[in-house]
């Protein structure tokens, strides 16, 4: 038998069970792929300009995206100012791409991220350099999703390291506070934490002080993410052999020097996969701010589908939003796999 023939026999028809599975899989594909292709490509409407054209075409309504993508991507941000969040996102993606090159891992990268956060915020906020001010209440769509995700991660990460160190501390009070915080937050659903942030923060603050909805949600996301990240970091701390602490002690390094120079660099390397996993979760979880009334990508997509004429084509709209989420998450998980290999190369 020739090679492809042998491969097919081994991998698809090796045993009766195997054959049954193959037949099932083929049947499933036969049932779903042709109708899907027909729907998505052949009978789709690609830009008739109105819901009516979609109804006539009978297939997928890509016209929806052509007509409503700006609302889905930018939410309520003033229409003529869309270039600003677009530019901010472009900068973000460019820096993300730069960060994935080992050559760029220099101190300036951290500075660049700091600068990006400032520049992007100024771009979005406006009020400087002749830009029209735009309140955060008007921010929406993908930029809002990215802002919340990135800020939540950036703020939660150092906080989580402190929590993880606290949890491993010899001082009982510090340990108890850290454990209490971590376990409390991890026992709660994010939704109820976000609700708490949105209904209770206003009560927590002194009279007359208000904080914006977006900031409240951001605080909620950050507190939540930090607890989970702390557990990931703790996993790494636990994996560091005792000898490393002893050697650092014997050399006379202080606690913080030991942590900063010896333990954390090793521990964080070990837990890249769970940390990135947590980043991915955080990114997906930003969609929950929809529930407390923010216009992130998901909520903006939902709003774009609110028009009764477009509503029948919700699958197309959500599919597009799903694709955006998928791209970011998939990129991050692939990146973490690559990073793990790359980092391992250096030391072993």
């Amino acid at each position: 038998m020739n090679r492809p023939g042998r491969w097919i026999k081994a991998n698809l028809f090796g045993s009766p069970v195997n054959t049954v599975l193959t037949v099932l899989a083929l049947a499933l594909l036969w049932q779903t792929v042709p109708p899907f292709l027909d729907w998505a490509l052949f009978s789709a409407s690609w830009g008739g300009g109105s819901p009516e054209s979609c109804r006539q075409a009978g297939g997928a309504c890509w016209t929806l995206l052509a007509e409503r993508h700006r609302l889905m991507l930018f939410g309520l941000y003033p229409y003529d100012q869309h270039w600003r969040p677009l530019l901010a996102m472009a900068l973000f993606v460019a820096l993300l791409a730069a960060s994935s090159h080992r050559r760029c891992w220099r101190p300036w990268l951290a500075l660049a991220w700091g600068a990006l956060i400032v520049v992007a915020s100024l771009l979005m906020w406006g009020g400087v350099a002749g830009l029209v001010p735009v309140e955060t209440a008007q921010w929406g769509g993908l930029p809002l999703t990215l802002v919340i995700a990135v800020l939540a991660i950036v703020v939660a990460f150092p906080f989580s390291i402190l929590l993880a160190l606290g949890r491993r501390s010899e001082l009982p009070v510090i340990k108890a506070v850290s454990v209490g915080y971590i376990e409390l937050v991890r026992g709660l659903p994010l939704v109820s934490l976000l609700f708490m942030a949105s209904v209770m923060f206003p009560l927590f603050l002194p009279e007359g002080v208000t904080i914006e909805k977006a900031l409240r949600a951001l605080v909620g996301m950050t507190l939540f993410t930090a607890a989970y990240l702390a557990e990931a970091v703790r996993g790494g701390l636990q994996a560091i052999p005792k000898g490393q602490f002893e050697a650092a002690d014997a050399l006379g390094l202080s606690y913080w020097q030991t942590m900063r120079l010896i333990i954390l660099p090793q521990a964080l390397r070990l837990v890249i996969p769970p940390i990135v996993g947590q980043f991915i979760t955080c990114f997906k979880d930003t969609s929950l701010v929809t529930i407390v009334g923010l216009y992130d990508l998901l909520a903006a997509t939902k709003a774009a589908l609110n028009d009764p004429a477009w509503r029948p084509f919700f699958v197309e709209g959500y599919l597009a939003a799903a694709l955006v989420y998928f791209c970011f998450c998939f990129f991050m998980s692939r990146y973490s796999q690559w990073l793990e290999r790359e980092v391992a190369k250096g030391t072993r």
Partner: peptide, 15 residues
């Protein structure tokens, strides 16, 4: 500062 120590398992910093 005055005492140096060498361990059975080396305990060099691998990173």
């Amino acid at each position: 500062r005055r005492v140096g120590m060498v361990f059975q398992s080396f305990n060099l910093f691998p990173h």
